[in-house]
Amino acid sequence: MPAPPRNPPAGATSPYLPYPAEIVEKRLESRGVYTFRLRFLDEVRHKNYDFRPGQFNMLYIFGVGEVAISIVSDPEIGETLDHTVRIVGNVTEALNRLDVGDVIGIRGPYGSAWPLEAAKGKDVIILTGGLGCAPVVSVINYITARRDDYGALKIFHGVKTPKDLLYRERIRAWQKDARTEVYLTVDHPDHAWQYSVGIVTNLFTQIQLDLSNSIVMMCGPGIMMHHAVRDLCSRGMRMDQLYVSLERNMKCALGFCGHCQMGPNFLCKEGPIFRYDRIRHWFETPAI
């Protein structure tokens, strides 16, 4: 599988420079979560921009700073470049004050990608928890657009309350596909909630998993992923069938600033997506 792309290519110019891009669409996904559709002002740059699902960009807000945000759109639909952002810090709050027509900066893409080639012909199990599910949405979008290349798609999504549920419209669309199953669960249901209650791993007991022919891709709070790994492995899943998307503080995305280290790994280079057996030693060590 070819290495994920890097823009700009090594040595072409200062790798620190962001490039201006216009917000062409801003969509509310859920409480405090928005998807920004961006377009480079430089048409050639927009046309040539390439990435793989799972990679991320550094987004720059004028006068405020940069933040690492994963790309959720389909790489083969060149027109769109979407980023789903949870509004939690200085930079994302400043981004949220912007609207369609405003300009921000982009540099990227950076990092590793989901194993979408290796997953061809297999069942794909997507596991997300909390609000951190943006990185896996890129996978779901990718697979649903190439449905015949993959086996069953089983999406497990757990959040705190029904209000935190992301992508309600998209979930409905995913549910319509005969070979896609969507399992939802919340910690604290309201009276209208019609799905499960409890942690996301509880849902595994309710369904048949073709363990030998599956690939699991997960993203969410550490505690959820720890539970999920333990649970799936106790059911006979091998660790090299599991992929996780991890998060760390990140200042440069170039392997220079040192902030995103997890043991020997720079999350901006070797990550953010890891095959589990390759990150296990570090992931299972607290506060590493």
């Binding site: 110019t13 200062s14 620190y16 420079l17 962001p18 490039y19 201006p20 216009e22 002002l41 720059y60 004028f62 006068g63 405003d102 300009v103 900066g105």
Partner: peptide, 16 residues
């Protein structure tokens, strides 16, 4: 200093 940004009528420009 890595780079500087200047506000423009439409967005901003970045200079190395």
């Amino acid at each position: 200093k890595l780079w500087a940004a200047r506000r423009e009528e439409k967005g901003f420009t970045i200079s190395d």
